[in-house]
Design a binder for these strands. Structure first.
Lengths: 187, 187
DNA sequence: AGCCGTTGTGTACGATCGTACGCATGACCG
DNA sequence: CGGTCATGCGTACGATCGTACACAACGGCT
């Protein structure tokens, strides 16, 4: 019956990972089960244990892909900028366009951080993500500033996403301007 | 005989909430169950449904208490400062002493944020927390700066906690100095 | 063409979950 | 001092979970 196409289906594994991200976005890591993910990916339950050693492996691969996706967009956004001012503007765009809009991405990011807070394995993923972000920034700013700016982006995005009142671009731009301006040395 | 004191035992409810925080810190919201929490609090399973309508209520009260605890410490730290420079130093201390050290608090914070990212009910808790933090800052900085500084604190704490390499106080101090120094106006 | 081994699937089991509900227990009042 | 009723507990049930394992389905080799 033209049905199964069982051997050599590399797409199956990918579909499971995508489905896992969907399920996690909707129900959280807490609510993600082999059964739900299998149903969402339209694969039999047995496929889960066949393709993955356990839920941990699914989560690790899912979040690795997720982090890579976001990081690539981050890099693309920063690569467009050529001048210092454009770089600053790009950061503001990044916070307001990319990192704030989607509830799905906010949720997935937080789920990942929660895992990373508890288990070092997931921290590798966040660490790679952070490094990739800083590498995208270092073309425009000095290394020390990159760290501060990266942290500021993180905080502003999170607060903008969780806060009820709207955050204005002007305020973000001001914050970015400040953090990228060396303070007068004093002692 | 002063023993069981079944009626009017307000301590029981509190113990359950404390136990819930312990369990969540260890096993995450995902791994927290009525049974585990009851066992940890040394109360019968039936007490869970008796004192709370469901897990949601337990989580809400637990995280409300947690957020209040952290916020109070935040306020205490900031209240010690009298001058502008002391306030800046207090912020640096806050990041390095209070917010980075404990794995338990990192985990609980992230678990809360994850819930807040998905459900508005929990966002009320984070919102109140953020407001309380900003109120503690506003004695020393202007409102706009408070928002930026609050976001910076969030980002720096998170990155310091998740990053493998050590973050130095000097870098934090520099970031705080920058964010609390108005940028030269330009247009 | 027909066997064979790899690849993938269906199912059944034991554990654990939240919740409902009947009953013990002790406080309070007459 | 004893009856009554709100308070709190033990237990049992149905649902859902991850996983093991027997077996179906096919490509390749002779």
């Amino acid at each position: 019956m033209a049905v199964t196409q069982r051997r050599f289906d590399p797409e199956r594994r990918d579909r499971i990972i995508s489905a896992a991200l969907d399920v996690i976005a909707e129900a959280g890591v807490a609510g993600a089960s082999h059964r739900k993910i299998a149903a969402r990916a339209d694969v039999p339950l047995g496929s889960m244990t066949y393709h993955f050693t356990g839920m941990d492996e699914v989560l690790r691969e899912a979040f690795t892909r997720f982090a890579a996706t976001i990081a690539v967009r981050f890099e693309a956004r920063m690569a467009q900028a050529t001048t210092f001012d454009e770089a600053r503007a790009a950061v503001v765009d990044l916070i307001h366009e990319d990192l704030t809009g989607s509830a799905r991405e906010l949720v997935l990011t937080q789920e990942l951080y929660t895992l990373a807070a508890r288990e070092p394995v997931y921290r590798k993923i966040t660490h790679a993500w952070m490094k990739q972000s800083r590498d995208a920034l270092v073309r425009h700013f000095d290394p020390a500033t990159c760290r501060m700016l990266d942290a500021l982006i993180e905080g502003l995005s999170l607060h903008a996403a969780l806060d009820t009142e709207e955050h204005h671009r002007a305020a973000t731009a001001e914050a970015v301007a400040r953090i990228t301006t060396p303070a007068a040395t004093h002692h």
